[in-house]
């Protein structure tokens, strides 16, 4: 079997007495788009914190490309793993270009100036996320959706083969949501990137994710191909919603239709 990007087993985490992850097992294969779905407070963001070494697990093992994540030196990890957390607010008036350039931090020696290659990566990332026209603007003065695209551009500029994203389209309008996810999909298909994204929209997850991890009560309720994950039974058991799942020719994807609580069958 090929080496997994992430091999996670028996993962446990708790905030004080409150257990969040309780024996989680799953693996992330290279070159796949994995979506993480689950109800609020099920530990999706905590999982990303653990996978990006922002927090340490209470128990269990977390292997990244075959190495124990905790043992990897941070700068080395930064070259292969980029994270876009949910909170992408910035408190100081940097320009958009400066923020995207921060994504090159792992590639620029401490007292060196950015190289032509770094500049090119910044321009490319800004173009891909359609924020080039904002390059000279201050990040404190742009809209929430624009900030989120800048945060994503920052992660793309990092040029890491593995991307961890916490609800990457939460503040985006529909056209930008589709553009961002299509861009990520292209990276996975063409460049062999691996994406792990916490998703809040089931239909976007259905349209873009190869694999899905359904989280419930700190455990993997289901982990595997998206086609098998999205069943009415799983959606009922994880979210407690009644739904119909069907293939839609027009969408070019599986579509989940949710039923209003109390509605007739």
């Amino acid at each position: 079997m090929a080496e997994a990007v992430f091999q996670i087993s028996g993962l446990e985490f708790a905030y004080g007495e409150l257990a969040v992850l309780d024996g989680l097992d799953f693996r992330v294969e290279a070159g796949r788009f994995l979506g993480v779905l689950g109800p609020n407070g099920c530990g999706k963001s905590t999982l990303l914190d653990l996978m990006s070494a922002c927090r340490r697990p209470r128990a269990g093992s977390l292997l990244f490309m075959g190495n124990e994540l905790e043992r990897l030196p941070r700068p080395r990890l930064a070259a292969s793993l980029a994270l876009v957390p949910q909170d992408f607010s910035l408190h100081f008036p940097f320009t958009v270009r400066e923020v995207v350039l921060m994504g090159r931090h792992p590639h620029i020696p401490r007292f060196a100036s950015p190289s032509a290659r770094d500049q090119a990566a910044v321009e490319r990332a800004m173009a891909e996320l359609e924020v080039t026209h904002l390059a000279g603007k201050l990040v404190t003065e742009i809209s929430g959706g624009e900030k989120q695209r800048v945060a994503l551009a920052r992660a793309l500029a990092q040029d890491a083969p593995v991307l961890l994203l916490d609800e990457p389209t939460s503040s985006l309008d529909v056209n930008h949501s589709l553009a961002v996810l299509s861009n990520l999909e292209r990276r996975v298909r063409r460049a062999g990137a691996t994406v792990v994204a916490v998703m809040h929209d089931i239909n976007l997850a259905a349209a873009y994710c190869d694999d899905l991890l359904l989280l419930k009560n700190g455990k993997a309720h289901f982990a595997g191909p998206a086609a098998q994950a999205l069943t009415p039974e799983n959606l009922w058991e994880v979210f407690g919603v009644r739904a119909r799942v069907s293939w839609d020719e027009y969408a070019g994807a599986r579509v989940v239709t949710l039923r209003k609580p109390g509605g007739e069958a």
Partner: peptide, 21 residues
């Protein structure tokens, strides 16, 4: 010595950590 780390930390702890700080 840490001036650039300080810049990066303006992104918040999580993002800064993932950038190797």
């Amino acid at each position: 010595y840490h001036a650039r780390d300080l810049n990066i930390m303006c992104l918040g702890d999580r993002a800064a950590g993932s950038l190797g700080v």
